[in-house]
Design a protein around this nucleic acid. Structure first.
Lengths: 136, 136
DNA sequence: GTTAGTTTGCAACTCAGTTGCATAAACTTT
DNA sequence: AAAGTTTATGCAACTGAGTTGCAAACTAAC
């Protein structure tokens, strides 16, 4: 629990039992998960508590949210240094076969030349297709 | 009504009264609109009919849908030649001030080098910020 | 231990999207 | 033009994600 607690406290989140468990589950995941996904992996707590836990984590930049177009927002761990600024953002991938959403952490979002007088605060870029796992 | 009907029939959509009206409203818009937006501009029909009308238009590539992250899918007219393939796609912009969603039709979505064995079918790219109108 | 603040759990609600079914309108066939 | 078939429309009702309010449980500070 030491590591987990440190991660929480370093982001100014009080380490409660549920928060530790949620962070552990998020750490184990290879893909981004939704509130409903989390709920199913986790019978010890109720939906709203998990919802608020994710919100807290997101506000404190421990995780980031991904709108992959499925209708359910997904969440994944941020890197240690992440401040969720545009320069920290990466492309996300949604597999049409396995329906999983991945962080392509190594692929930064390409920069865009906006029209005159438009200013940017955030970008969301989701590629849909078939992942390597489902393609082989 | 001639133009409107032609647009519908050229996309293999039977020109009914409601479809003509919906297409006219969509044509007038400078921005993408949601089902609820459409509903409010339009008291002559019910929600479900408008919903199905939009679905039909989308299936027949008269309009495209945009998931701008607000929780309500927006719709906007396609260009005449559009087949909604990746090469037809453009960047969308959501203004955090006026809450409007625009097609940046002149800005194609930059190409991405996916990891090995990943294949692409579709991309969604939404920039959030402040539009030129709200910035001046 | 009492108090103040935070977290958790339950109930309940909103809103977007969707489905089923019955009626109405539009086309087909004779 | 009448009968039958297909398609579109309107109403009711439901699902699922997200959200809020409130009270009980817990934690931290004095």
């Amino acid at each position: 629990m030491k590591d987990t607690d440190d991660k929480l406290t370093s982001r100014n989140i009080k380490p409660t039992a549920i928060r530790e468990l949620v962070l552990d589950i998020l750490t184990e995941q290879k893909m981004a998960i939704s509130l409903s996904d989390l709920e199913q992996k986790f019978h010890k707590s109720d939906r709203v508590t998990l919802y608020r836990t994710l919100k807290t984590f997101e506000k404190n930049k421990l995780i980031h949210s991904i709108d992959d177009g499925t209708g359910a927002v997904k969440y994944a761990l941020c890197k240690e240094s992440c401040q969720c600024h545009p320069e920290d953002l990466h492309v996300h991938f949604f597999c049409l076969k396995c329906q999983h959403t991945f962080c392509l952490s190594d692929i930064p979002i390409p920069s865009i030349n906006l029209p005159v007088n438009f200013s940017m605060e955030n970008i969301n870029m989701v590629v849909k297709g078939v992942c390597s796992n489902c393609n082989s």
